[in-house]
């Protein structure tokens, strides 16, 4: 994907293309369903489970199992497609390349922590994917593999019992359960913070359905990527550029108020629609 394409119009910077948004949609929708139907099994007496059971009726338990399996299939199919996407499509290849952890991420993490605890006044500048997002991505990959694997064992319990025995089943159950908790908490604490609570994105980072970030958001979260996109060359952001940008006063006060921003956004939206 060329930088031309990514820089759609002046103030919009493509964050997720349509294909990726569909993947993300499939991922998070199946994820939510899996969480509800999964914890619905584990905590059958909790109030929200009771509500759901009340609404669905006497076959809620059976429905829960079926829906959980459907969602898991959706997630696994989406994951497999994602695998295909990152291997065989140019934008996918670029994506996985950008997601790969590099040494710079360790440095960014260190600087970021120093900045956050107040030891440093400089906020490290992030590229297309910061260490936050990389952690997130690989956590999802890890989680999907673990959950998919153990889930399959539990799904076809009569087959797998023969190979792993009751102990194996218990191990699979334990992993599936704890991994679920870990994944849910990670999404809740890590992902949701950056998407919703984060003052720069608040109330929500709309990239997941609009596909683009505003200049302001880019400036805040991905200044290097912004710089790269706005740069003339199509090459990746070099360290020099990164340094250059790092030196620049990024966190200068904003000239626009919130209201103005909203107005601007609305205008952009209408423009987008017209187009």
């Amino acid at each position: 994907m060329s930088s031309e394409e990514r820089k759609l119009i002046d103030e919009k910077f493509l964050r997720m293309n349509f294909n990726e948004r569909i993947q993300h949609f499939l991922l998070f929708s199946s994820f939510i369903v899996l969480i509800l139907t999964g914890f619905g099994l584990k905590f059958p007496e909790s109030f929200w489970v009771k509500w759901i059971v009340f609404i669905i009726g006497e076959n809620a338990f059976e429905a829960r199992g079926i829906v959980h399996r459907i969602a898991s299939v959706v997630m696994i199919v989406a994951s497999l497609y994602h695998l295909y996407y990152v291997i065989f499509t140019p934008s996918g290849r670029q994506l996985i390349r950008d997601f790969f952890p590099v040494k710079q991420d360790v440095a960014d993490f260190r600087d970021s922590m120093l900045y956050l605890v107040g030891k440093s006044e400089e906020k490290p500048l992030m590229g297309r994917f910061s260490y936050v997002e990389k952690m997130e991505y690989w956590a999802v990959v890890w989680g999907t593999v673990i959950m998919g694997g153990t889930g399959t064992v539990l799904w076809f319990e009569n087959t797998f019992l023969k190979y792993v025995g009751t102990m194996g089943m218990d191990v699979a159950t334990a992993i599936h359960y704890y991994e679920a908790i870990l994944a849910s908490l990670a999404i809740l604490v890590w992902h949701f913070y950056f998407i919703f609570l984060n003052p720069d994105s608040f109330p929500m980072n709309k990239a997941w359905y609009k596909g683009y970030l505003t200049r302001e958001e880019m400036e805040h979260e991905h200044p290097l990527e912004l710089k790269r996109l706005e740069g003339t060359d199509e090459t990746e952001v070099t360290e020099e550029i990164a340094e250059e940008i790092t030196e620049a006063p990024v966190d200068k006060p904003l000239d626009v108020t919130e209201e103005q921003l909203d107005k601007k956004e609305n205008e952009e939206e209408t423009k987008g629609k017209k187009e």
Partner: peptide, 10 residues
């Protein structure tokens, strides 16, 4: 079904 071969490991 087929539990005849089940490994009761614990």
């Amino acid at each position: 079904p087929g539990a005849t071969e089940v490994l009761f490991t614990k």
